[in-house]
Amino acid sequence: MFARRPRLAARPAPPHHLDPRAKTLWRLNALMEFAVLLAFAAVAAWGMYRLDLGWGWSVIPVAGALLIGTITVGPVPGLRWSRWRYEIGEQEVDLQHGLLTVTRTLIPMTRIQHVDTRRSPLQRRYGLSSVILYTAAGAIEVPALADDIAGSVRDRIAELANTRDDLL
């Protein structure tokens, strides 16, 4: 089920991938979340043990946390990376993302109000940036592009979007 290409690709998916370092970044993030989750699971297991429910019950939260952690740290970042595609066209920004539910998003250039690049400390460590597109109906983030690419994407969008907006 995962291996199959999304059928929406009847139209070709946008050509550009995110930076490959995104996978490492996401994996690190997932690892940190995993640690937190494991800590909660340990507390829950200890609580169950103290409640004399039998040690069998204590296994459940720990096993659950391990399972979730293995999935989110293991295959998820790679899969998410391969799904994430983008294209900055003349008329529209074309995005595709999503793990199980694959979403294709089209945003006309003239609807983009402004563009930001943003870097978290961890992103800075890897030389990555996020580009955030703001429209009057909310924002959407293109995560983890290489710094220089993010900058040029931002500038290109800003340039293309700088036409009179007929919203107002």
């Binding site: 199959r4 059928r7 539910t101 694959v102 979403t103 294709r104 006309p108 109906a137």
Partner: peptide
């Protein structure tokens, strides 16, 4: 229209169905 999204979960993919979302400024 500000943005148009089409999304497909695995079950929809099997049935060749998809969900359309559009948003206007609000």
């Amino acid at each position: 229209l500000q943005r148009r999204d089409v999304s497909q979960n695995p079950l929809q993919r099997r049935a060749a169905l998809a969900t359309l979302r559009v948003a206007v400024a609000s």
